[in-house]
Design a protein around this nucleic acid. Sequence first.
DNA 1: TATTCGTTTTAACCCAGGTTAATTACGGCC
DNA 2: GGCCGTAATTAACCTGGGTTAAAACGAATA
Lengths: 173, 173
Amino acid sequence: MEFNDFLIDQGQIIHKDKDDHLFRQGDMNSSLYYIKQGFLKAYYISEDGKEFVKSFLSTGNVIANLTSVHLKQPCSYSVICLEPATLIMVSFEDLYQRSLEDQSIARTIIEVLLKLALKKERREYEFLCLSAEKRYDLIQKNMPELLEKVTQNDIARYLGITPVALSRIKNRQ
Amino acid sequence: MEFNDFLIDQGQIIHKDKDDHLFRQGDMNSSLYYIKQGFLKAYYISEDGKEFVKSFLSTGNVIANLTSVHLKQPCSYSVICLEPATLIMVSFEDLYQRSLEDQSIARTIIEVLLKLALKKERREYEFLCLSAEKRYDLIQKNMPELLEKVTQNDIARYLGITPVALSRIKNRQ
DNA sequence: TATTCGTTTTAACCCAGGTTAATTACGGCC
DNA sequence: GGCCGTAATTAACCTGGGTTAAAACGAATA
């Protein structure tokens, strides 16, 4: 069985409004979500209430809080819809079990995880080796649509700096 | 077939001296390595010659340059042995192909990739949300052995700061 | 049109970390 | 022992980004 068939077969379609949460930091969540349509934001809130944007998620991608679905611990971050969204929700556990029997599904999971690992390695590289200004340059070069879609506040928090600092960076370019 | 059997069956044992490279940034490399014994460092060299430590790798773990083995591009970072090491080297492509037919191997690969994704997410969180000083605190708390094994220079470059800055952090604690 | 609320900019001041360079400490090794 | 190279510390100075607060700029709604 194909991954997509499994989603259609076992999954549940859910609709979310703008500003609705998929899950919240601190809660348990055992689902994997496929984004049929929408644009979402994954973010951390620190102990002193500051927000940091982990990633932006768009149509065609899947999202699951690994800490919760795999380690069975509370979600380490929240996910909120930046626009109305349609998703397919499945139990991660069910999908994982199915992958043990089904070649095609195992293959897709490996593919998804490889892609995720590469993306996270890329982001690790940017934080480790580049200045905030260089990281902003990369967004301008590689994801210009992002600058249209989200506020400068969210871009700043994605870069790991404050909105004030981002305004300064733009100013000196 | 189990993952370990595949390694023993298809793999090639290799010995490396201290300071030997497993692969170098810019080269192609199509292998996955299992660390039978040893302690290694993965690092980037920036355009202006500065070193940044991506990770430390110890006995029992596997290492493969995903950019090279999966995307078929030159290695994005180098790996060097900090002590003499014994490894098992296999073709990533062969392992990947085998996972398409073999349930058990697919399962192990998924397990390894999930663990990797969680590790990289954790590091992303630390860079995004924590100061260098907080990140150093976490090393002291969670990986105190590391402070014994590697130089302060390498710890600093792993934290994304200079050795001078790390010396100051230690000093003000 | 006026009001409101969130976003962005600007300014002033502070501090963590970068840079450079000199100094000290700690090994090997002859 | 003396020598050499690397690691670590210290100091002086610089800079990018944090913090706070005020102002400017929307877009949306009354």
